[in-house]
């Protein structure tokens, strides 16, 4: 067991957890933050993407113990005072989701893209979302949503 101290969505959290706990399991099973989804559990699909110290990572492929002292943001941490994040608004407006399973990861990944590039091209968006798989939309509206968000952020 290891004790870890992290900041999750602005809240300080201190827990004792088994050494081999994955960040995805820590979030979902211990903290009940089930907005972070586990799709493939083998680092392919990207449904589990969260931000650690501002950068996107796949939470199914990181040990929580290894992130001691980090600042973590999950999909639950995006809305402020009941108002959705511009990326969430854009996904809603442009119909960037159907079943919604991949959406938390898509949104977290896309926000990281806009931190790197303010106005990405279609190709840059598609390249960046290489690690996020959606089996419903065909990606057209996801790309449209990211462009919409880029114009608002």
């Amino acid at each position: 067991m290891k004790k870890i101290d992290v900041e999750i969505n602005g809240k300080r959290i201190s827990k004792e957890i088994p050494d081999h706990t994955l960040l995805s399991d820590f979030l979902r099973n211990i903290l009940n933050l089930t907005g972070t989804h586990i799709g493939c559990d083998t680092s392919q699909c990207g449904a589990c993407v969260v931000h650690v110290n501002g950068r996107s990572i796949k939470s199914c492929t990181a040990f929580a113990t290894d992130l001691n002292g980090s600042k973590i943001t999950t999909i639950e941490g995006l809305a402020k005072n009941g108002k959705m994040h511009p990326m969430q608004e854009a996904f809603k407006k442009m119909h960037g989701l159907q079943c919604g399973f991949c959406t938390p990861g898509m949104v977290m990944s896309a926000i990281d893209l806009l931190k790197n590039k303010k106005n990405p091209s279609d190709k840059e968006i598609r390249d960046w979302l290489e690690g996020n798989i959606c089996r419903c939309t065909g990606y057209q509206n996801i790309v449209a949503a990211v462009k919409e968000a880029a114009s608002k952020m």
Partner: peptide, 9 residues
Amino acid sequence: IGDPQVRNR
């Protein structure tokens, strides 16, 4: 290399 999340880690 890989995808952005791989490159970040």
